Amino acid sequence: MKVVRAKFAGACYGVQRALDLALRSVADGQGAHTLGPLIHNPQVVQKLADQGVTEISSIDEVSAGSSVVIRSHGVTPQVMRSVEATGSPVVDATCPHVSRAQRAAAQLAQQHGTVVVVGEAGHPEVEGLVACALERTDRVYAVTSADQLPADIQAPVGIVVQTTQQREALDSVVAALRGRGIEPEVRNTICFATSQRQGAAADLASEVDALVVIGGRNSSNTTRLADICKERCPRTYHIESVDEIDPAWFAGAETVGITAGASTPEDQIDAVQRRLEQL
Rank of each mutant, 00 (worst) to 15 (best):
A205L: 08
P42H: 04
G119R: 04
V242N: 06
S206N: 11
E244A: 11
L129W: 01
T86I: 08
H40D: 02
D243P: 06
E207G: 06
A262Q: 04
A262W: 01
A104T: 13
C95I: 12
S219D: 00
V140I: 11
T34S: 13
A175N: 12
S263F: 01
L19W: 11
G10N: 06
D243S: 14
V174K: 10
A49G: 12
L211T: 01
V160S: 00
L211E: 01
Q196R: 14
Q166H: 15
P150K: 14
L38P: 05
Q154P: 08
A271Y: 07
F250G: 01
L129T: 04
H73R: 00
R232S: 10
A133T: 08
Q165S: 03
V90R: 07
R103N: 13
R71P: 02
I56W: 07
R235A: 14
H97A: 13
I214Q: 02
V256H: 03
G257K: 01
V126G: 02
D171K: 13
E61R: 10
A142Y: 04
V173Y: 11
T255F: 00
V208Y: 02
K2Y: 14
L279K: 04
A11L: 07
T76Y: 10
P96W: 04
H238Y: 08
T114H: 08
A11H: 04
G179T: 06
Q16V: 14
C132N: 11
V143E: 09
R187S: 12
I39E: 03
E185N: 11
G14V: 13
A6S: 09
T259C: 09
G181P: 09
A32L: 12
K2N: 15
H112G: 05
R178I: 05
D171W: 11
V117C: 03
V213K: 03
E168S: 15
A202F: 09
G74A: 05
Q107A: 15
G199W: 10
G74S: 02
V117E: 00
V143H: 08
A262P: 05
D147S: 14
G257I: 00
D138A: 14
Q162G: 02
E183R: 10
N41D: 00
V126R: 03
G10E: 05
A49M: 10
T189E: 06
A109P: 02
L38Q: 09
H73N: 01
S219R: 01
V161W: 00
L276Q: 07
S220Y: 07
T222V: 11
A18T: 12
A133K: 01
S263E: 00
N41C: 00
S67T: 13
Q46M: 14
V83W: 07
D60Y: 12
I228V: 15
V140D: 00
